[in-house]
Design a protein around this nucleic acid. Structure first.
Ligand SMILES: [Mn+2]
Ligand SMILES: [Mn+2]
Ligand SMILES: [Zn+2]
Ligand SMILES: [Zn+2]
Lengths: 165, 165
DNA sequence: CTCCGAAGTTGGAATTATTCTAAAGTAGAA
DNA sequence: TTCTACTTTAGAATAATTCCAACTTCGGAG
């Protein structure tokens, strides 16, 4: 049968990689960490800590936002996920996909999408070889206005780039 | 003679570009904005708002931190400088050099240095051509431990990556 | 040259994402 | 099962950034 509550070996390879990173570091695989890893691996939305918390609090009512922050920080320090930074909404967005690619962030709607790009792999190699740094992660983001928000801006040409208030 | 108080046409091409971006946008070239642009163009240190403020407050005692934030925001929105994000010190670092290059951020000492890289120009072109976004800026950062901080970490192997407190 | 309105600056208050804390819970080795 | 170091938790604390309303400055009209 396909019953049983939880699958000990996750099908999602992204999720498996995150859990393995925790294991390799000698850290415990708690329910909370599993849930956060599962959520990170399940979405391409580049979520913030608050978004992860909101997505999980129904299933795990005792989950604390502090745990989400702690886990994200741990995963970033392990190099298992990337911290892309703020996209205009004041919160840091995270990316569980560490395969070489470029991220496009919209300053208007705050969404982040991926752009496959072979040149990034070359970049990774060059940085690893020449920088002398111990690299933990990358933040490869181009920011601006997505196609939809550009259209929306044209229909309401009221505020120019110079306008503050 | 080489007297006179201020040079109307700055020698630094980076500074000239920042001022021209403000002019082109129809914005006023105030003393504060000039000073902030001059400082941004004068350093390769990828400063934060507070660092810029600290560097200028002796020369401009009335300068407000709010003005530094406003000006940085304006320059970012014009695409004249890049917002690289937080490097572990909780503050956003800015880069007045928008020529294609990679930035290396150290999570320990919070310094950011440049790594020239021709592959980035290709990346820029690809993103401009294929993304459909109106690109305002880029945040091309690899983060980790700089050579110096790696050495320091070896001599004090007390706290591993797993240690929180 | 003087006046006026828009744009810009200022200091301090307000906001809020993130971090800190100490107490309570639990994974996992033995 | 037992033990303990590692984790989680709720809430307080921190501090970067934004907001605000009053004041100043700039550049053009008259
Ligand atoms: Mn991505
Ligand atoms: Mn740089
Ligand atoms: Zn958008
Ligand atoms: Zn360092």
């Amino acid at each position: 049968m396909k019953g049983r509550v939880a699958s000990p070996t996750p099908q999602n390879p992204l999720e498996a990689r995150l859990l393995q990173a925790l294991r390799d570091a000698g850290l415990r695989l708690t329910v909370q960490r599993r849930a956060i890893c599962r959520y990170l691996a399940s979405t391409k939305s580049h979520p913030t800590a608050q978004q992860i918390y909101n997505a999980l609090k129904d299933e795990f009512p005792s989950l604390s936002l502090a745990t989400v922050y702690n886990t994200l920080d741990t995963l970033v320090r392990l190099g298992a996920i990337h911290a892309l930074g703020n996209t205009g909404d004041g919160a840091i967005h995270y990316d569980a996909d560490i395969e070489p690619h470029v991220n496009l962030a919209c300053l208007q709607c705050h969404r982040v999408v991926d752009l496959p790009c072979e040149a990034v792999a070359e970049l990774d190699r060059k940085v690893a070889a020449e920088s002398g740094y111990r690299i933990l992660g990358a933040r490869l983001v181009y920011y601006g206005l997505c196609p939809e928000c550009q259209r929306a801006a044209q229909q309401t040409p009221s505020v120019s780039v110079a306008a503050h208030h």
